[in-house]
């Protein structure tokens, strides 16, 4: 069995327009890959389609998580199978506290009849919040309601740390973050890097990759990966833009 997140010939349409056009990519377990690309290249579509959002129609292809086709599972099954998406625009859930939400998500991963140890849960959550510089009062606040952009992103990382996925996609997690918040978020991600976990970091800017250093960088353009390189590729893109690659692809 392949220990990887493997995207195979993925075609995705939104409202009848094909956005991803036969995309291929494999992130082996233990690695961090970055996807960069100009606006409209399909970066966010990739994240939403893998998560199973109802507006994104997969017309062809497969996404394998350790050899199992993720696309045959429901949205929540994909999550419980070990897939996590840190959203670019996290939703608000009025009236549901952060702590209750995380608890429900953790509970959903336990066999029926088994209950979460509340004391251990809170201890763990507080420790992780401390690491992300989140005030403990956030546990009692409704999920993302009235949070600033930076607070929402930190909250996404907190959820990721609490759910401990094997494969995570970070969809433009750096957007809307100042440099201090960016460092904190990156530190959270780095603390989770291990041989059993992979990350696919979607970003528009090279800046994030100074702090979350990828093993591999891909360029997505027109719905396909058109170029792949090492971490230095990000710097090159920052300096030269995308034209030198996209010209060939067009």
């Amino acid at each position: 069995m392949n220990q990887s997140l493997k995207i195979e010939n993925l075609h995705v349409s939104v409202e009848g327009h094909e956005i991803l056009r036969g995309m291929n990519l494999e992130v082996p377990k233990g690695q961090v890959h970055a996807i960069m690309g100009p606006n409209g290249s399909g970066k966010s579509t990739l994240a939403k389609a893998i998560a199973g959002h109802h507006d994104y129609e997969v017309t062809e292809g497969a996404v394998y998580l350790d050899g199992v086709n993720l696309l045959e599972m429901s949205v929540d099954e994909r999550s419980r199978a070990g897939f996590f998406l840190a959203f670019q625009y996290p939703r608000e859930i009025p009236g549901v506290s952060n702590a209750n939400f995380l608890r429900a998500a953790r509970q959903a991963r336990l066999p029926k009849g088994q209950e979460i140890d509340a004391v251990a849960f809170y201890r763990e959550m507080y420790a992780k919040m401390d690491g992300l510089g989140m005030d403990r009062k956030f546990t009692g606040r409704s999920v993302n309601e009235g949070f600033s952009g930076g607070e929402k992103k930190r909250n996404e990382i907190l959820q990721m740390m609490m759910l401990e996925p094997q494969y995570a996609i970070l969809d433009e997690t750096d957007s809307g973050l100042d440099i201090d918040a960016l460092k904190i978020v990156a530190h959270g991600v780095n603390s989770m890097r291990s041989a059993d976990r992979s990350f696919l970091v979607i970003t528009h800017y090279q800046r994030l990759l100074d702090y979350i250093v990828p093993d591999v960088v891909h360029v997505l353009f027109n719905g396909r990966i058109i170029h792949t390189g090492g971490k230095e590729l990000a710097l090159e893109l920052e300096e030269k833009g995308y034209d030198w690659i996209t010209k060939d692809a067009a």
Partner: peptide, 25 residues
């Protein structure tokens, strides 16, 4: 909102319950 909750592993019923409980909380 439901999609967001499902992405965290809650099934449809659990997500609905949580939303409704949030509404009357």
């Amino acid at each position: 909102q439901i999609f967001y909750m499902k992405q965290r592993g809650l099934n449809e019923g659990e997500a609905m319950s949580l939303s409704v409980n949030g509404f009357v909380n």
